[in-house]
Design a protein around this nucleic acid. Structure first.
Lengths: 342, 342
DNA sequence: ACGAAAAGTGGGAGCGCTCCCAGTCGGTTG
DNA sequence: CAACCGACTGGGAGCGCTCCCACTTTTCGT
C-alpha cells in the first residue's frame, strides 16, 4: 500500500554482501577503505552499496571498535558570560571548521552547575566521546584533572597555570597586554590603571602580568592601587572603574582585560563626565563585536579566537590518533586594533 | 606494576550480575528502572554497581534499542551571521537547559556550505541522533523536507511558511513589528520606513507584515518606497538606510527587522548628520547585546530566544517519545524595550 | 489447604559490525 | 611438475546490551 522506499529496516552489511555476491569481510574492507580487495570485488560491493543506499550502523561499529567518532566541546561558564561573549561562537566555528573534513561529530556540553558537572563526568566515564575540548579554564577546575585521570584525550583552550601538563593552546596574553600598555605609554599617558579578569584564571593573571611588564620596562614604578580585579562582566568592569577612580582620581588610561569590561568602564567614565580618549584612554581585549559599537569605538587587543578553535581541534585529533605522544602547547599571536578610545 | 584502578576493561552488565549473584536480566532491569525487581535483588545490584563503578556501554545499548540519546541542533548559516548574532548562543543555552535533566546529549552541527549539508544528510540517514532541531529557516531550505522524508523527528525554530507542516516554535514577529511601528506612530512619526530581513525567510516576511498591518490599522497609505530589503547584516542595514534616505529624504522613523541592521542604519544616519531620535527614530528587533551599546541605545523588540530554545527542545522530546502525534506549533510573545533611539 | 494468578528471575537470541584466521586460487620457482 | 607463495576471500567469534520467554517462587482467594 505505502511506498516501501523509506520504510522497513535499513540494509545491513550482510545484505550488501549478499547482493554483491561476496562475504561480509569483503564488504567491511571496502567500506573502511582497507587494502586487499580485488578491483572486481570492490566494484561489485560499491554497486551494491549505492543500490541499497547502505549506510553503516555507527552503534554497531562503535561497539566493537570502541571509538565513537565524537568529540565534546565543554563550556564551563555561568549563564551570564555565554550570553555576552561572542568568544564561544568563534571557538565553535573554529572547531566545526576543523572537524568538517573528518567524520568526527561535535558534542556541545554546557557546564553551569554542580549537576551538569556530574552529568559530564558520567558522560566522560561512559566514553561517549573520543576526546574533550576544554575552554575557559579556572585554576581550581576539577575537570582537567578528572579527564587526565581517566585517560581521556583532552586539549585546553587556555591553561590552568603556566606549567600546564595537558596539551593546550592560548593566545599571547602577556604580549598582547604589554603591547596595549606600551601603546598607552607612547600616547603620553602616565597613570595607567588595569581592570583584570578573575585571578584564578591564567588569562586574568597573564594579562595583568603584561600590564606589569610593560610598565616595568619603561621604568615606571607600579602602583598597586591601579589594579582592580573584576570578573569579565560588564557590571564588574563598571564597578572596577568606579573603585579605580575613587582610589586614584588622576588616572588617564585604563587597560581592561576584556572588551565587555572595557564597555562597563566606558559607561562609568561617561557617567563621571570623563571624556574618552581625551581625559582617559581605554583599551580592551578580545576585539569582539562590542568593541565596534561602543562610543567611542574601542581600541582592543585582538586574539585569533577562531584559530584557537581550529588549533585545539587539530591537537585533539592528533592526541586521539597517537595517545602516547607527549603533550604539546601552542601560543597564538595577538594584534592591537587601534580605534578611537586610545 | 601500575595501579589497576583506572586500567583494564570497564565492568560489564555480566560482571555486575555475577557480583550481585543475580542474572543479567535483573541487572538490566535495575539499571533501566524497570519494574518487577524485588527489593532485595535491587539492593544487591545497586551495591555491586557502586562497587564496580559500573557504567552502561551506550554503544551496546544503542545497537539494540536503536536510540542514541542524542539530538542535533543544526545551525545553517553563513560565517558572518554566527559571528555577529548572540541569537545562537541564547538558543543553545535554552536547548541545553531543557536537556540538562534528561540523558540526552546535544550535537551541534554547523551547515555553512554544500559539503557540510551532505555531511549532515549522511549523518541523519545513519540515524546518529534521535531528533533534530532546526534554526533559522529559509523557505527553500531542502533540509526540513529531507528530514521529514526520512521520518526524523524534527522541530523548527521559525518556519518555512505560515502553513508549516513540521512542528515549530517562533516568536510573534508580526505582532512585535506592529507594536514597534505603533510606538513610532504614537510618537508622532509620520514617514516610517522599514529595513526588512531576507524575504525568503518567514521572519523577514512576518516582520514586514507587522509593519504593513500597523500602518494600515492607522489608516496610513503604505508607500512601497519605504521598504528596503536587507539581509540581517550590519552592512546590509547601512546600505538599506542609504537607499531609503535617497528615495525618501523625509523619513522620520525606521523599523529595522534586527538590531544588527538597525546598528548599520544608525551609522548611516550619523554619517548623514541626522540626529537620532530627534530627526529619525529607530527601532530594532531582537534586543540583543548590541542594542545596549549603540549610541543612542536602541529601542528594540525583545523576543524570548532562550525560551524558544527551551520550547523547541521540549517539543522535540515529545515528538521523539510519541512520533504518531500530529505536529504542533507554539508562538511566543514579544515585548518592546524602549531605550533612547525611539 | 490447594490451585491459580501474580511477581520475580535467568539466560538464550540477536542487534550490525570488526577482527582475525583458516582457507582458496592463481601464478611462480627450482 | 611439484611445492610453494602471495593475494584474496568467507565466515566464526564476539563486542555489551535489551528483549522476551520459560521457569520458579510467592501470594492470594475461597
Amino acid at each position: 500500500m505505502s511506498s516501501p522506499k523509506h520504510q522497513g529496516q535499513r540494509p545491513t552489511l550482510e545484505a550488501v554482501a549478499e547482493l554483491a555476491g561476496v562475504g561480509r569481510g569483503t564488504v567491511s574492507r571496502v567500506v573502511n577503505g582497507a587494502p586487499g580487495v580485488s578491483a572486481k570485488a570492490r566494484a561489485a560491493v560499491e554497486t551494491a552499496i549505492t543500490q541499497l543506499n547502505y549506510i553503516p550502523n555507527p552503534a554497531a561499529r562503535s561497539l566493537v571498535t570502541s571509538r565513537t567518532d565524537c568529540v565534546a566541546l565543554v563550556i564551563p561558564e555561568s549563564e551570564s558570560r555565554l550570553a555576552a561573549e561572542p568568544y564561544f561562537s568563534a571557538v565553535i566555528r573554529g572547531v566545526s571548521t576543523e572537524l568538517a573534513d573528518t567524520e568526527m561529530q561535535l558534542l556541545l556540553i554546557l557546564v553551569r552547575d554542580r549537576r551538569e558537572l556530574d552529568r559530564l563526568t558520567r558522560f566522560a566515564a561512559a566514553r561517549r566521546v573520543d576526546g574533550v575540548l576544554l575552554v575557559s579554564i579556572h585554576d581550581d577546575d576539577p575537570l582537567p584533572g578528572l579527564l587526565e585521570e581517566m585517560r581521556m584525550p583532552t586539549v585546553l583552550a587556555g591553561r590552568r597555570s603556566p606549567d600546564e601538563s595537558l596539551s593546550h593552546v592560548h593566545s599571547d596574553n602577556v604580549g598582547g597586554a604589554a603591547t596595549a600598555v606600551r601603546h598607552l605609554i607612547d600616547g603620553g599617558r602616565t597613570t595607567i590603571a588595569t581592570i583584570t579578569g578573575p585571578l584564578d584564571m591564567d588569562v586574568g593573571n597573564s594579562r595583568l602580568r603584561g600590564w606589569r611588564e610593560a610598565l616595568a620596562e619603561r621604568g615606571a614604578a607600579v602602583d598597586e592601587r591601579l589594579v582592580a580585579v573584576a570578573d569579565f562582566t560588564e557590571e564588574g568592569g563598571r564597578t572596577a572603574m568606579r573603585d579605580l577612580l575613587d582610589r586614584v582620581p588622576g588616572i588617564d588610561a585604563v587597560f581592561a582585560a576584556s572588551d565587555v569590561m572595557a564597555a562597563g568602564a566606558l559607561t562609568e567614565l561617561r557617567e563621571r563626565g570623563r571624556r574618552v580618549p581625551d581625559d582617559v584612554a581605554v583599551i580592551g581585549f578580545d576585539d569582539s563585536v562590542i568593541a565596534r559599537h561602543t562610543t567611542p569605538a574601542l581600541t582592543s587587543v585582538r586574539q585569533p579566537i577562531e584559530a584557537i578553535g581550529r588549533s585545539i581541534t587539530r591537537l585533539l585529533l592528533t592526541e586521539i590518533a597517537e595517545p602516547a605522544t607527549a603533550h604539546r602547547q601552542l601560543v597564538l599571536p595577538t594584534t592591537l586594533v587601534v580605534r578611537d578610545s586610545a
